[in-house]
Amino acid sequence: MTLTPPRQTGSPTSARTNAETLPSRSPGVRCFQSAVEFPAALEAIPPARRELHTLLCKSGLAGIADIVALAAEELMANAVAHGCHGLAPDTTVDMAITCDGRQVTLKVEDPSSDLPCVLPGTSDEEGGRGMLLVDAFTDRWGVEKPSTGGAGKAVWMELACSPAEGAEAS
């Protein structure tokens, strides 16, 4: 099932989306899995974030939609700015999200093998706090080989569907 039709190809914000509804294990939360491929361009991130936020809200996860969307935006921005820096204009980034009724897992894949790191934020720097936010707002995150098995990496994050579940897991 596709939640939103793919945008026309050729624009910097075009993306291919594939979404599927899964059986729910939690009342009020609709389980799902979805994947999107978008151009490795910073202007492609806001539409992907909005689409993700909408999916979460429609799935009964409005209570964590802002946090997931913010952390996902940071992973997408890192993938574009660092993982795809200097690569061909047709380079793409893949994002996949799954909700099993108890936990949301989101993964962003890019072609670089350079690992992300959490840097201490300083008051005189504008950037560099993305992974600090991911670390603070998610239950856990990490890096693994991409699902394609090729070069690059997949940075993933997990967050409980409700704050109470995340506190119990800690």
Rank of each mutant, 00 (worst) to 15 (best):
A41Q: 14
A154F: 01
P5M: 08
L115H: 08
A71N: 06
P116F: 07
P46L: 12
S14A: 15
T138L: 02
D94F: 13
P6S: 10
A164P: 02
I97Y: 01
C161T: 10
D94E: 11
T2N: 14
V36I: 14
R7W: 03
A71R: 00
W141N: 03
L75N: 01
G83I: 05
H85P: 13
T21A: 07
A154H: 11
F137Q: 12
E51S: 15
R25T: 15
R49D: 10
G121A: 12
G83V: 03
L159M: 13
N78G: 06
G130I: 03
N78Y: 09
H85L: 10
A77E: 09
A62V: 07
A35Q: 11
P5K: 09
G10N: 09
A40F: 01
S34T: 09
S112Y: 13
T138F: 00
K107T: 15
T138Y: 03
Q103H: 12
D135R: 10
V134M: 01
E168Q: 14
R102E: 15
C117R: 15
I67E: 05
D110H: 03
C117K: 13
M131P: 10
N78H: 09
F32E: 01
L42G: 10
S59M: 02
N78R: 06
G128T: 06
S123N: 07
D100I: 11
K58R: 12
P47F: 07
A81N: 09
R140G: 04
P47Y: 04
S11N: 12
A48H: 03
I67T: 15
P111V: 00
P12S: 11
E158T: 08
G142A: 11
E144R: 13
P39C: 07
V134L: 07
Q8L: 13
V118M: 00
H85Q: 08
E168F: 12
N78M: 02
L56I: 14
E168D: 09
M131Q: 05
E109P: 11
T91G: 10
G121P: 07
A69S: 11
A154M: 06
W141D: 05
K58S: 13
S24P: 04
I97K: 03
T105W: 06
T148S: 15
T148K: 12
R129S: 14
C31P: 14
T91E: 08
G86Y: 00
T17F: 08
V143Y: 14
L3N: 06
P12K: 08
V36P: 08
T92R: 11
T92Y: 04
